[in-house]
Design a protein around this nucleic acid. Sequence first.
DNA 1: GATCAATACTTGAGGACGCAATCAATACTA
DNA 2: TAGTATTGATTGCGTCCTCAAGTATTGATC
Lengths: 153, 153
Amino acid sequence: MPSNWLDETEQLAWRNFVTTLPDLNAAFEADLAPHGITMGDYEVLVFLSEAPDNRLRMCDLAAALRLSPSGLTRRLDGMVKAGWVERASCSSDRRVMYAHLTAGGRTKMEITSADHVQSVRRHFIGPLGAKGVQQLSSLFLAIREQLHARQPS
Amino acid sequence: MPSNWLDETEQLAWRNFVTTLPDLNAAFEADLAPHGITMGDYEVLVFLSEAPDNRLRMCDLAAALRLSPSGLTRRLDGMVKAGWVERASCSSDRRVMYAHLTAGGRTKMEITSADHVQSVRRHFIGPLGAKGVQQLSSLFLAIREQLHARQPS
DNA sequence: GATCAATACTTGAGGACGCAATCAATACTA
DNA sequence: TAGTATTGATTGCGTCCTCAAGTATTGATC
């Protein structure tokens, strides 16, 4: 074993982390499933609802979602078909397409968000406790800053 | 906004968490990529290397990996082709197939693990700090216990 | 101002995964 | 012990994603 191996405490932390993540994610998906929407699509609704004019350029939205351009194109296809989003072209730059939240999309998000917040509270906020929420917040902030320090996105 | 909405601190913690995860994951994958292996395949090697006789039943391995049976079948196809794993039938129950770590698979894991541990240390352990490691460990333990409390897997 | 590079998006091809159906083997039950 | 249910693994099919290539538009350079 190399000298930089994880000690027991570090090993335990790492395992607690990586073994919990998939189940946590599955729990959120399962809670959203009755609404007929995935976490991925729901996140699109959230980003658009918070953007100016309820719209974002495809490339900006893709970057925010950590999705490839083609991946977003196809995800949006489905959401347009569902009536939650529409495409709109840009007058000042005819290369860009806006993803624009429709009224139906906003309604969908509002209905869904109530359950989703409850889901986050039950699976995430609740078990952490008030102190744990603050701890976890700053821990992940530190991780993210370290990530962006080397690879400024 | 419903009454159970997240307050500002909770909101911030949640966002720090969900926005960091994809980048963290991408960092691990990127560090492993030069070895020509994915996190998914690497995890198979780890599980098998720690199992008795370096082998696990397909169904047990699938459960450990949070993978569907068919998903594991196909992942193993690739790993068998790479020479890291071999399938072995079970004498006492002819339904089961063992996934068995080969010598080449163990070598692959040992070579790869040095870099992977460094990767975990840089992106995860390092920014957390000694105190943060312990905090995060118990926080995710709490989350997992809450998850299993309702849905005993 | 013509050319070349960069940017924004889409499409085609291929990979990874889940669900449902299938087949084989074992366990339960009357 | 015969019949049924359960378990373990695989295959077909559909979905979602990425990469590479292609098209269109804008920006940069000489």
